[in-house]
Design a protein around this nucleic acid. Structure first.
Lengths: 251, 251
DNA sequence: CCAGGTTTCTAACATATGTTAGTCACGAAG
DNA sequence: CTTCGTGACTAACATATGTTAGAAACCTGG
């Protein structure tokens, strides 16, 4: 019995996506995990490295990013407690992007080989992990659109809406109010903008009464308008996956 | 014995990623598929729809895209013969983006339920399909970077390099020369640019002797320079997946 | 309570890319 | 051979966002 703490979280997470039976649960709990605490800004995975264990984020925030040849950074996704941080890199073997801590994080590390074995022997668990990576991919797609086709105000509005919804789903926010764990520079790196411009837009959102900010805390005052400006629709988050998806299971 | 034509392609595709045994192959060949021919520009999947069958692209080109609230289009990926077109939407149940034919296409359609059953009963096949979707996701990540952090010339250079490599891998191009199956407007929708600007940049690439164009055919004259301008590195394509990844299989 | 780093915020100015509007070239259809 | 529609291409002009640089606010550790 290693450490039920993190693994129970995996069970709960996958259980919203696929139906797990008691053997599935037992197999998950039998995983050998290593707990670790990670400093803010520390790298957990670096692009180009071979990846041997998959990271589960227990507390804190982390993000994935790539750096261009001329040193610009683009953030690819932001992760919240309870999420697999790196099934993407793990299953492909060679990391094609960096994973870095945003705040101090507690993580559980699972050897990739054990995860592969689990997926083979317990197909439902494998399917749950697969779906997890598919939802990551759905978010990537939406970010391509965000960064490719929306203007600066829409991009930021979209990002703020996404965070609100995901944080609320994770039980980390209520009433459209939350602590944003990022600097304006990081927001810029999420949206393909410049820190200066992010500041301008955030200020403008304040003027328009869309949001209220105090330090890192954000409150969305006019949800419907912000959502409209950000062209935000929750479909791509597939939050109900486990609803319809679940029912059509094989056999 | 339905139609070996398309399914043999699936076998070959997955076999480069995971080791399939004869039972795996047999199970794939036992799939019931429906062949269909698709007109250029026809939709194969629409955002918001429930998806009941997964499409395998046998010949022709197709692409995925989303449309923003104000009607702008962003292309998310371009697909070549032999690729699964829509494992992403299929496995999630509800389409979060559109899939459209670029040229006339021959496709094979496989019911999602059969695919799920296959993944459960033949874990190696399931893992192969999973990896396929992970590589899609890796390409999405690179596109976020492309569109978020590179200037117009880099974006297009990157895209042209990606096509060159993928087309060569698919046996559809040689010597850095290929038929580009897209209009300049579509190139613009891939890169988050405007058709006018794509035209400017393409012209400039010609002036600089980077590429030569004749109608839709493209020849890359200075591969190393174009690759440098586009900040292009093949790592994210995981073309060797089946090499290192394959060897670390479970057990 | 100070010192030094980080983050926020501003202003003035620069520019890459978008917009509009149109001509030209070409291939398909009749 | 003509017509029509689409895609390629251009020019003149507009603007959203980037750049540079610095001041102010704020944390954090000593």
């Amino acid at each position: 019995m290693a450490t039920p703490l993190g693994l129970e979280r995996v069970v709960r997470r996958l259980d919203t996506r696929v139906r797990l039976d008691s053997e599935d649960r037992a197999a998950i709990h039998a995983l050998q995990v290593t707990h670790r605490s990670v400093e803010p800004a520390a790298y957990m995975v670096r692009e180009g490295e071979a990846v041997e264990s998959c990271i589960l984020l227990l507390s804190g925030f982390a993000y994935r990013h790539k750096v261009t040849g001329d040193g610009q950074r683009q953030i690819l996704s932001v992760h919240m407690p309870g999420e697999f941080l790196d099934l993407q890199n793990s299953m492909l073997g060679l990391a094609d992007h960096n994973v870095q801590a945003l705040t101090r994080c507690e993580v559980a590390m699972v050897p990739v080989s054990a995860l592969r074995k689990l997926a083979e022997e317990r197909p439902q668990v494998g399917r749950g992990m697969w779906i997890d990576t598919l939802i990551d991919a759905a978010i990537f797609r939406e970010w391509i659109v965000n960064v490719g086709r929306r203007d600066s105000m829409s991009r930021l509005a979209h990002l703020l809406c996404e965070f609100a919804i995901r944080l609320e789903a994770a039980g980390l926010a209520r009433d459209r109010r939350y602590e944003l764990p990022m600097t304006q520079e990081q927001l810029a790196d999420c949206t393909g903008l410049t820190p200066v411009h992010v500041n301008r837009v955030l200020k403008e959102m304040g003027h328009q009464g869309l949001i209220a900010r105090d330090k890192r805390s954000v409150e969305i005052l006019q949800w419907d308008r912000l959502r409209h400006i950000g062209d935000f629709n929750t479909r791509y988050l597939h939050m109900e996956a486990g609803g319809p998806t679940n029912l059509q299971s094989a056999r």
